[in-house]
Amino acid sequence: MTDSKVRYTYFVHVSDFIDRVKELLENEEDFAIVEVIKTEGPTALKTGNKLIVKKDGSFEGWIGGFCTKDEIINNSLEVIRDGVPRFLYLKTCHGGLLYLYIDPMLPRKKLILIGDNPIIYYLENLGQNIGFNIIVINKIIDIDKIKINRNTFAVVATMGEQDHEYIEALLNTNIRYIGVIAGKKRGEDLISFLHNKGYKDDILDRIKVPAGLDINAKSPEEIALSILSEITKISKENKIEKVEEGEIDVVCGMTVSKSVPYYSTVGEKTYYFCSKFCKDKFEANPQIYIK
Rank of each mutant, 00 (worst) to 15 (best):
R7N: 13
F11W: 06
V12P: 03
V14M: 15
V14G: 12
V14L: 15
F17Q: 03
D19T: 08
D19C: 09
K22W: 09
L24Y: 08
L24G: 01
A32E: 02
V34F: 02
V34N: 07
E35S: 15
E35I: 10
G41T: 02
P42C: 09
A44D: 14
K46T: 10
D56L: 06
D56M: 05
D56Y: 06
T68A: 09
K69C: 09
D82F: 08
V84E: 14
F87M: 11
L88D: 02
G95D: 02
L97N: 13
L97R: 15
Y101R: 11
Y101C: 03
M105V: 13
L111D: 01
G115P: 02
G115Y: 00
L126Y: 12
N129Y: 09
I130F: 09
N133R: 14
K139Q: 15
K145C: 08
Q162D: 15
H164P: 01
Y166E: 00
E168N: 05
N172E: 13
N174W: 02
N174P: 00
I178M: 03
I181C: 01
K184Q: 12
K185R: 14
D189L: 13
L194S: 05
D201Q: 11
I203M: 11
L204K: 07
L204T: 02
P210H: 00
S219I: 06
P220F: 06
I223M: 03
L225G: 03
L225M: 12
L228A: 05
S229D: 04
I231M: 03
K233L: 15
N238L: 13
K242D: 10
I248E: 13
D249Y: 01
V251S: 08
G253L: 08
K258G: 11
S264A: 14
S264Q: 10
G267T: 02
E268V: 09
T270D: 09
C278W: 04
D280A: 10
D280G: 11
K281V: 02
F282H: 07
E283V: 02
I290D: 08
